[in-house]
Deep mutational scan, measured.
Amino acid sequence: MPSETPQAEVGPTGCPHRSGPHSAKGSLEKGSPEDKEAKEPLWIRPDAPSRCTWQLGRPASESPHHHTAPAKSPKILPDILKKIGDTPMVRINKIGKKFGLKCELLAKCEFFNAGGSVKDRISLRMIEDAERDGTLKPGDTIIEPTSGNTGIGLALAAAVRGYRCIIVMPEKMSSEKVDVLRALGAEIVRTPTNARFDSPESHVGVAWRLKNEIPNSHILDQYRNASNPLAHYDTTADEILQQCDGKLDMLVASVGTGGTITGIARKLKEKCPGCRIIGVDPEGSILAEPEELNQTEQTTYEVEGIGYDFIPTVLDRTVVDKWFKSNDEEAFTFARMLIAQEGLLCGGSAGSTVAVAVKAAQELQEGQRCVVILPDSVRNYMTKFLSDRWMLQKGFLKEEDLTEKKPWWWHLRVQELGLSAPLTVLPTITCGHTIEILREKGFDQAPVVDEAGVILGMVTLGNMLSSLLAGKVQPSDQVGKVIYKQFKQIRLTDTLGRLSHILEMDHFALVV
């Protein structure tokens, strides 16, 4: 994948999101292997301009796509893939009243899908469409860049269908997702969380590099694949309309690839034109409109599966009536509230959605109805927002919020430890010299600072030695090549209790 991002070429006709291997024109390309080798690009942008032909009021008969309808489940399912879809609609009884809503608040519980998330729908649909058009064949390999849930859905379907599955996901995604993927037989590649989507090191860039190296491999490409919004247009939206008897006044959905909100909203605009569509985008993402909503100094966020630093091709923002931004604290607070007060075992993005819903639905009156999409299960986040310690460490809970008995030293300040200034190293000294210094002084790690004293990161003896043994660096290389740029900081005025929580999850903390 090139470091400079080429513009994806656009073909003359058809839909841009065809499933299957992508040609340089962004659509299915038939021909000899030699032709494909000559024409197939190194990668295709996940934010390529959409060429979708959908228009409100256009006859369904003019759609270029294969459409399906929700099917009634048999008493005995032939395999677990038949437990994807037909998820329950559940009334939220307490939270709406707590925040003064007059309307009825309903939750579409997508964590009841077989793999635990709304992404099971698009995973199965992308595979079925690729099999139907002859792209996927027995023994082929599926590769997908994902925040985890699409990966789980694909790995689940691949396990049943017999495909090899490789999932490329950023490091910030939970260990629970990784464990589930491994249990399903998927191979996992992790990428830096802070890598831009168009960087060769991003999950998108690495996935395309693997595709170019592995024979008979395919990126189904949830960011561009029409099967993504079509899955929701054909099934999720129809289920909502049936469950609500066609009567709903507002739908609120958090947005990642945009397939969920695009597919549902398009069908609702056709069948229930008075329904307002509300999009939820986390602070630090750029999906919301108008652009002024996205202006923030924050560039990272903890909530998973929603928000991006690019506009995915499948996201149709014209069908969203209003956007709201959400933050991590309210997302996790509301997710825990949904679990504790409503018994809905949902993930953090569901918290984002409901946090926005109780604001947006203030305009609705008694007798009206708001539906929220709860995308995934708490299963993926047992060591994250479900953990009091994690919430404390991230600053989303305060010590006084917890009532468990603490040891005698818990409320003492870090400054009472009488710490001395640490050994520091410059980023320009060599790895070999740094190892000598650390061994001589008896230290395992040291902060790396520039000549102005600005902290650049941390270097550890173990990481340097393993990097040297693996051949990633040489003793003569500058130590700046092996620094940890993500590390926890703590102030002298913070409590030892807070430091204790940090050290339970990290090997060190830097006192500043």
Rank of each mutant, 00 (worst) to 15 (best):
I76P: 10
R45G: 13
K94P: 01
I261W: 04
K172W: 01
S61K: 07
L251Q: 11
Q243W: 06
A253P: 01
A207V: 01
S27V: 11
T141G: 06
A107C: 13
M173W: 01
V255G: 07
S19Q: 10
I261S: 03
A107W: 11
F112G: 09
A69H: 06
I167F: 07
S19W: 14
G139I: 01
T53P: 01
I95W: 01
K172G: 01
Q7P: 12
V180W: 01
T68A: 12
T87F: 01
L248N: 01
N225W: 01
L220N: 01
P6M: 15
L241T: 07
A38I: 01
C15F: 14
A69S: 05
P16Y: 14
V10I: 10
N93L: 14
L124W: 08
F197V: 04
D35N: 12
D129N: 15
P2E: 14
S23F: 11
M250L: 12
I95Y: 05
N212L: 12
S32I: 07
N225R: 03
L210F: 07
L42G: 13
S61I: 06
P46S: 07
R209E: 10
D179C: 11
T260S: 08
K108I: 01
L28A: 10
E9S: 06
L230S: 07
P16N: 06
W43S: 06
K247P: 15
R266S: 07
I219N: 07
E62H: 06
N194G: 01
M250T: 05
K177L: 03
E34I: 01
D35R: 08
A207W: 01
R196D: 01
D35A: 13
Q7V: 13
I240W: 01
A183F: 01
D79W: 05
H66R: 09
T68R: 09
P2W: 10
E187R: 01
S199E: 05
D234G: 08
T257G: 01
S50P: 08
T236E: 04
L77M: 10
L156Y: 04
P273T: 04
Q243V: 07
L124K: 10
K83F: 09
A237R: 01
T68G: 14
E37F: 10
G274F: 14
A195P: 01
P70F: 05
P145F: 05
R121G: 04
L106C: 15
A130G: 11
L154N: 05
I166N: 07
T141V: 11
A183M: 07
G258M: 01
I142K: 01
E176Q: 11
G256T: 01
V10N: 14
A237T: 11
R196E: 01
T68P: 11
A159D: 05
G263Y: 03
R132L: 07
P16S: 01
K267A: 12
I214L: 07
S217A: 01
L56G: 01
Y223I: 01
A253L: 15
T5A: 01
S63D: 09
M173G: 04
I214F: 07
R132W: 05
S63Q: 01
A207Y: 03
I95C: 08
E213G: 12
E144K: 14
L181F: 06
H66M: 09
K98S: 12
C272H: 15
Q243R: 09
T235Q: 15
E40F: 13
K271D: 04
G11V: 07
L77D: 01
S27P: 01
P273V: 09
S50R: 01
D249Y: 01
R45E: 14
S19R: 04
F112S: 01
D221S: 01
E144F: 05
E144R: 05
D133S: 05
G100H: 01
V178L: 04
T262E: 04
T262P: 03
R266K: 11
A158T: 12
F99Q: 06
I95L: 01
L220V: 03
R45Y: 01
V180S: 09
G151C: 05
S3G: 11
T150Y: 04
V160C: 15
G148R: 01
N113I: 04
K94C: 13
G96T: 05
I264V: 12
E201W: 15
R18G: 10
T236S: 10
L77G: 06
H67R: 01
P170G: 04
K36Q: 13
E270I: 01
T257I: 01
C275Y: 01
I122T: 06
G11Q: 01
F99G: 12
K211N: 12
I92V: 11
R209D: 01
G263E: 01
L210G: 08
D47N: 12
M169Q: 12
H203P: 06
H218P: 04
R132Y: 01
P88G: 01
V118H: 14
A130M: 01
V255A: 06
H67F: 10
Y233E: 01
P74R: 15
S254P: 12
H65W: 05
P46W: 05
H65G: 01
A195C: 13
T68H: 09
R121Q: 05
